[in-house]
């Protein structure tokens, strides 16, 4: 049994028989997923299929009732220390950006590095400027989120997560709240990030993005993983009827 053990060490995220209920409603049914370090995974599916819920379980924004979640070798339990440990290493980008409106862009970026990772303000700010340059908005550092466009805000949100030097990045429909002409600037940043080898789990319907960067595409419906494959196979030869229907609907126009 040496092979699985070697594989184990390379796993960034592992979900084993994950089950979750909202009250009586069974949202996640026996999810099994292994994400290797450096792997880029795109998760798609109709609304209500549980895809957002699944990635929100990984950093415990949602609580699961059954099964195991292992992030970088840490078993996620109710233990607050472990939860904080995982959150420190897992960045998350939200659909509605969720920047802190009372803080400037720079303050948004340095808050967690200073108060969670205990970096000095000087180091944190230098690091933050580096990431703001990477998402191409260093000149907005002194502005407040309310003064920026949606695309700019989402790029700041990505920079804010990167400032924590995460091992894994979770994207929860990062472009669905954006105007069409702003989607590209955010996707470009995400593609660069993928090319640098970041482990990424993206819930998104941007199929072009999936084709460009994903190692694997996962299709979910009714709380289950219906199908997973490399993007080439996934788009050209979907195995499952439900997947075919879904793809025909979103690729129609």
């Amino acid at each position: 049994m040496t092979e699985p053990q070697i594989k184990q060490a390379n796993l960034a995220v592992e979900l084993r028989n994950l089950n979750k209920w909202y009250g009586d409603f069974h949202v996640l049914k026996n999810i099994n997923l292994q994400v290797q370090k450096g792997e880029r995974i795109v998760i798609c599916g109709p609304s209500g299929s549980g895809k957002s819920t699944m990635i929100r379980c990984i950093n415990r924004l949602e609580e699961h009732q059954q099964g195991e979640i292992i992030v970088n070798g840490i078993h996620l339990t109710e233990d607050l220390k472990k939860i904080e440990n995982i959150r420190r290493n897992v960045g998350m980008v939200f659909q509605h950006f969720n920047l802190f409106p009372h803080l400037t862009v720079l303050e948004n970026c340095v808050l967690a590095p200073i108060w969670v990772n205990k970096e000095s303000r000087k180091d944190a700010e230098a690091n933050a400027m580096k990431y703001l340059e990477r998402v191409r908005i260093p000149e907005q550092a002194k502005k407040y989120p309310g003064q920026l466009s949606g695309g700019q805000q989402q790029r700041v949100a990505i920079a804010r997560s990167l400032c924590m030097n995460p091992d894994v990045m979770l994207f929860d429909e990062p472009t669905s709240a954006l105007d069409p002409e702003m989607i590209k600037e955010v996707l470009d940043v995400m593609i660069e990030l993928a090319q640098e080898g970041m482990t990424m789990l993206c819930v998104t319907h941007e199929m072009g993005f999936a084709k460009t960067v994903a190692n694997r595409v996962i299709f979910m419906d009714a709380g289950q993983i219906i199908e997973e494959n490399n993007p080439h196979e996934f788009f050209d030869h979907p195995q499952h009827e439900r997947t075919q229907l879904f793809l025909s609907q979103i690729l129609q126009h």
């Binding site: 950093n59 924004l61 959150r87 998350m92 939200f94 802190f100 967690a112 804010r160």
Partner: peptide, 13 residues
């Protein structure tokens, strides 16, 4: 709610 979630996701106590 997003403000709480963003703060949680960054690991703030």
């Amino acid at each position: 709610k997003g403000q709480y979630e963003a703060a949680d996701a960054l690991g703030l106590s």
